[in-house]
Amino acid sequence: MASQGTKRSYEQMETDGERQNATEIRASVGKMIDGIGRFYIQMCTELKLSDYEGRLIQNSLTIERMVLSAFDERRNKYLEEHPSAGKDPKKTGGPIYKRVDRKWMRELVLYDKEEIRRIWRQANNGDDATAGLTHMMIWHSNLNDTTYQRTRALVRTGMDPRMCSLMQGSTLPRRSGAAGAAVKGVGTMVMELIRMIKRGINDRNFWRGENGRKTRSAYERMCNILKGKFQTAAQRAMMDQVRESRNPGNAEIEDLIFLARSALILRGSVAHKSCLPACVYGPAVASGYDFEKEGYSLVGIDPFKLLQNSQVYSLIRPNENPAHKSQLVWMACNSAAFEDLRVLSFIRGTKVSPRGKLSTRGVQIASNENMDAMESSTLELRSRYWAIRTRSGGNTNQQRASAGQISVQPAFSVQRNLPFDKPTIMAAFTGNTEGRTSDMRAEIIRMMEGAKPEEMSFQGRGVFELSDERAANPIVPSFDMSNEGSYFFGDNAEEYDN
C-alpha cells in the first residue's frame, strides 16, 4: 500500500510504541512475548500442572481467558453494579484439565481477579502490559475465525453469508486497541457500523446529549479505520460520505453494504499476525530463551520457528480426527482463516481442507461434555516452508469459486491468482447506482469489472525454506488448481455463540 510509510507498523501498534527502528520493534515485541511466557509459567505453578498438562491447549485457553477477564475493567465495573446470582464479580476462573488415573478430569478453578492481575503485572515488570493482553485477544479471535462461520451475524446486519472472507476479527472485544483495529476485516468494521446506525434509528437519543457526542466521535473513528483499509480513492470518498452524514440511517447502511461487497474484489488491507497460545510461549521462556534479547516478529519467520520446536497437546472428542484438529489450530496460529487453501497447503506441506470436510468441533470443551471418553493427542503445528504475512489485500483475480465463501483475504505475501467468483459478486451490483453516491458507485463498479483474471497478485513473492531466515531465496510455489480455494466452501461450520 502506498501510504505504508505514514502508518505505524503493526509491531508498533502491538507494543504501543512511538516510531521505533526494526531492532527496537523486535525487542519490544519480544518483551511482550516474554511477559506472556513468564505469566503462563507462574500460572502453571499456581495450578500445580504437570509439564504435559501445561502444554494442553484447553488449559492455555482457560488461563488466557482468566487474565483477560481480570483486566476487563468495563465488564468488571458492570458486574459490580449489576450483581447477578451466583456470579462473584471479583473472581474469575474456568475449567482446568488434569490427568488422573490414566483419565482426563475437569476441575473448575476460581481465583481472585486481583490475584491474577498481581501475577500478570509481576510477570511483566510491574506494568499492565496491555500489548500482551491484546495479543491474547487476537489469538482467540484468530481461533474463532478458523472455527466458526459468522453466517447468522452477517444475515442479521443485512449482509450476504458468502462475504465471510471479510469477517476477520469479528469476535475481537471493543477494547483491543490499535492492534485489534489493524486485524479487523472490512466486513467486521461494516458490521460494527451498521449495528451502531441501527441503534440510532431505533433509539432517538442515541446521537443526542453528552453521551451522543461520545457516540458520534466513536462512529467517526470507526469510519476512519474502515476508510484506511480501502485502497481505492472511490471507496475512500464513499467512506467520507458515510462519516460526514448528519443523521446516519438506511442510506448509510446501503452504502456500507455496497462497500463491503466491493471489497470482495477491490480488497481492503487487513493486517495478519501470528499470535500463538500462551502454552507455546511459556515452555520456550522456561527453556531459557530470551525473546527480548533475541527479538521477535509476528509477521516473519519467528512464529514458524517457534511452532517448529513446540509440543502442544489437545483434548480430542471420541469421533474427532486429531489431524483435522491440528489443521484448525495451525490455521489459527498463522492467522489464515480466509487465505486461499492452495497457498496454505503449499506452505504447510500437507493438504489443507475446507472447514466442512474437517471432523472436528471447536477447541474448547463445553462444561456439560462427558470427560470419560476424552483422549488427548499432539497437535501437528509444523510447516514445510515459511512466508511473510501481508497486510495488503493483493490485486484481484477471477477463479472458480464456491457456493460458500466467494473470495479470499490473503494472509501471506505469496504470488498467486486470487480466487473470487466474479459473476456471483457482480450480480449483486445491478441497477442500484442512484442517489448521492452514484458517481462513486459507478466508478467502483467500473474498477471491479476491469479486474483481470490473468493478473498475478504479489508478483514474484515466494515462500522460503525454514533454514532461509533472511528470506534470501524465494520459492514461487505451484498450486494444484483442481483443489478448492475457499475454506468455508459450501460450508456447515458451527455458528459462533458468545
Rank of each mutant, 00 (worst) to 15 (best):
P89L: 01
L266V: 03
G282Q: 12
E455C: 15
E80C: 00
E294K: 06
I96T: 15
S262M: 10
M239P: 06
R8N: 11
I316Q: 10
L381I: 15
H272E: 08
R391H: 08
Q364D: 13
N250I: 14
R446S: 06
K229D: 11
M447Q: 02
P354E: 03
D127S: 15
S345Y: 10
A271K: 13
R261W: 15
D468Q: 10
N211I: 15
A131P: 12
R121G: 05
T430S: 07
F346V: 04
S287D: 10
L47C: 02
D439H: 13
G132A: 14
C333A: 15
I257S: 15
L193G: 15
L418V: 00
C44E: 09
G35Q: 07
T147R: 04
V343K: 08
E465M: 10
V280A: 02
G126Y: 08
Q327W: 12
K214M: 08
A428C: 08
L358D: 11
G200K: 13
M189A: 01
K113D: 10
S359W: 09
Q58E: 05
A337K: 08
M159W: 12
Q20L: 12
R355A: 10
M43F: 09
A181V: 04
I194H: 01
S287C: 14
T134V: 01
S367Q: 05
M43Q: 07
V408M: 00
I388T: 03
P248I: 10
T215R: 01
G54N: 15
K293Y: 10
A373C: 01
S60A: 00
D497V: 14
S245T: 15
A427M: 14
E484Q: 03
Y148F: 05
A251W: 10
Q42N: 06
M136S: 06
K87R: 06
K31P: 06
F412I: 09
Y111D: 03
S438Q: 12
V100I: 12
L256Q: 09
Y313L: 03
L56Q: 04
R118F: 07
A218L: 13
R361E: 10
D112G: 14
V155P: 07
E380I: 08
H324V: 10
K452C: 09
G54H: 00
S359H: 02
I316C: 00
I253A: 01
S170Y: 11
P322R: 01
R74M: 00
N309H: 03
M196G: 12
M163F: 15
A271S: 04
F338E: 10
K422N: 04
F39S: 05
M238W: 06
D302Y: 03
V329R: 03
I445N: 10
D468F: 10
L154P: 14
N483G: 13
L307N: 08
V109Y: 07
S314I: 05
S217A: 06
T147Q: 02
R461E: 12
T23D: 02
P89S: 01
R348P: 09
P354S: 13
N473S: 13
E24Q: 01
A22S: 01
I253M: 02
L154E: 06
S176C: 01
F412K: 01
G295C: 10
G485P: 07
G288V: 05
E380H: 10
F258P: 03
L68G: 01
A428I: 12
D421W: 00
E114H: 02
K91A: 02
P248G: 04
A278V: 07
S359L: 02
E220C: 11
A493W: 10
A323C: 01
F429A: 06
S245V: 04
A411Y: 09
H140S: 05
T232Q: 15
I316F: 14
R26N: 09
G37A: 01
A493D: 10
T23A: 01
A85P: 04
G460M: 00
G200M: 13
T437C: 06
A181F: 01
R236P: 05
S345I: 03
D51H: 01
Y289M: 14
I116C: 14
